[in-house]
Nucleic acid binder design. Structure first.
Lengths: 98, 98
DNA sequence: TAAGTAGTTCTAAAACTTTGGAACTAATGG
DNA sequence: CCATTAGTTCCAAAGTTTTAGAACTACTTA
């Protein structure tokens, strides 16, 4: 149904319309599954701020999060990306990784 | 260059991550070129608020605006849509209009 | 040239988002 | 069972966006 598409589309676009979240997702697309620690050197944001951004991406269903031991592992949800922002994948996913 | 893509992508996503702007663009994709007056019945927002949203869409290059006589005519920029959010067109543009 | 129309721009208030410190939780290692 | 690690959640402050009223501008028409 179209309204469902619209509602999720707005959520997806809102989530990606922030440069920090955009970069997080970009790295996940480029590198595959990563734990939060992977972003330590790559941002000046605090852990709580990053945590908030992970949650926003998760709520938009752009990433899947799983906990294992001490770590939260995140990975891009390619189904959602493919549906709403295929150019994002096209631009950031290395050919060899497909 | 990739950074240019990223910068414009964030702008485009931010612009579309607001339900009012999303609806404006949707109507432009469905109906073609429209003047501001076309939105009169379709929103509860004030003219200044709408004007602000048109500008945001224009800055993201999602719409082109032209003035003729008393009216500002707006139309969707399909090149930018095609590049950044093809599913938006796919979903909202009637087949017959292509 | 005066009045009306279709907007824009300016401004400030209200609403929302982003951020980090502090306190917390859950899992692991000694 | 205590300390450490890898986060999260809670909270309040700071920053940004959204909004509408008022004032303005550009164009048209009488």
């Amino acid at each position: 149904m179209k309204d469902d598409f619209d509602r999720q589309a707005v959520k997806v676009f809102k989530a990606l319309g922030d440069p920090n979240r955009y970069s997080i997702l970009k790295l996940l697309v480029e590198q595959g599954e990563l734990s939060c620690a992977a972003f330590d050197g790559k941002t000046t944001l605090s852990k709580p701020a990053m945590s908030h951004h992970y949650r926003t991406l998760e709520n938009a269903r752009l990433i899947d999060v799983r906990k294992e031991g001490l770590h939260y592992y995140m990975k891009a949800n390619f189904k959602v990306l493919e549906r709403f922002v295929p150019s994002f994948i096209e631009t950031h996913l290395k050919k060899k990784n497909r």
